[in-house]
Structure formats: C-alpha cells, structure tokens
C-alpha cells in the first residue's frame, strides 16, 4: 500500500517535471537552456531512495523526455544520460544525503555528466550534431542553471520522496 503510494508520487513528480520543463520553463530560458528539472528529480530519487530506485527513475524520466512532444531526437539518449547520472548520484549517496553542499556538488556533477553524455551520443549517432564549441557552452550553461535551481527544488523533492516521518513512526 505504502509502496504503491510512493511509486505513484514518484511517477507524478517525474511527469510534472518533464511537462514543466517543456511547457513552463522556456519562459526563463537563457539561450534556450532551461533548468533540467527531470534531472533534479532523478538525483533526488537516487539520493533518497538509493541507486536501484535512482536508475529506474532515471530510465523512466529520460525515456519520457525522449518521447514527450517537442522531442524528436533518437529515443533513449536522455534515458542513457539520466541512468549514468543516477549511478553517479547513487555512488556518492552516503556522503551527499546529509550535507547540502555535497548534494549541490552531486547535482553539478550529474548535470555535467548527463548533458555531456546526451551531447556525445548525438555526435556518435549524427543526430542533431552541433559544433563542439556550442556544445560546451550549452553543457556549462545547463550546469549553472541546475546548480542555481537545485537549492530551491532539491530539498522539496527530497522531502517529498522520502518516507514521511509520521508514517515511519506508525509502522
């Protein structure tokens, strides 16, 4: 019962993040780069719930980002990028869960890895390949955005995804 409830919350958060990213956040886009909310959800899930849930959420969120309307690149590229980011976040989980600064560093590292993996997979597949200089610019702008937004969003996400204290006491 509790497990189902938590899975539903997680699924809802993932869908909301992806929709907000394409429909609402372009308002604040800088050169078209927006905060990667879906990635923050993946990092939060990996930190709070551990690497297994993290990679599963990463795969699901990435695939949704690959398939949801304006996307038309080869499907699976964001999925791969997010899974690798989730593996990274899961590895440093013990250190990053309790220290805000370490969590922020994790977000930065995951953002860099995810955007770079996505960009490189595009170069390999010849799918929307852009000049390298532009690619690097986008990767760092995205990193900056994610680190700026993380302090606002990550604590909320982590509290939402963690088992509620009342429930834990009741069990």
């Amino acid at each position: 019962m509790s497990g189902l409830y938590r899975t539903l919350v997680l699924a809802l958060v993932v869908v909301l993040a992806v929709v907000a990213q394409v429909a609402v956040l372009p308002v604040v886009a800088v050169n078209g780069v927006v905060p990667n909310l879906a990635l923050l959800v993946v990092v939060a899930a990996a930190l709070v719930r551990g690497p297994e849930v993290g990679v599963a959420v990463g795969f699901a969120a990435g695939l949704l980002l690959d398939l949801a309307p304006p996307a038309e690149h080869v499907a699976g590229r964001w999925a791969l990028a997010f899974v690798l980011a989730a593996i990274l976040a899961g590895r440093v989980r013990d250190d990053a869960r309790d220290s805000p600064l370490a969590a922020l560093a994790t977000v930065g590292a995951c953002s860099f890895v995810a955007t770079s993996v996505f960009a490189l997979s595009g170069q390999v597949l010849g799918d929307h390949a852009v000049p390298v200089g532009q690619m690097i610019g986008v990767v760092f702008l995205a990193l900056l955005w994610d680190v700026v937004v993380a302090p606002l969003v990550l604590p909320v996400l982590m509290r939402l995804l963690t088992r509620s204290p009342a429930r834990e006491l009741a069990v």
Binding site: V22, N31, G32, V34, L65, H73, T115, A129
Partner: peptide, 15 residues
Amino acid sequence: VVGMGPMQSFSRTVT
C-alpha cells in the same frame, strides 16, 4: 506554441 524543447536536447523543436 505550448512547448519548447530544451537547448540541452540540441534540437530546436516546438509543440
């Protein structure tokens, strides 16, 4: 226009 793909995706598409 109701949706715009993020530049992180390197494709310029809109819904």
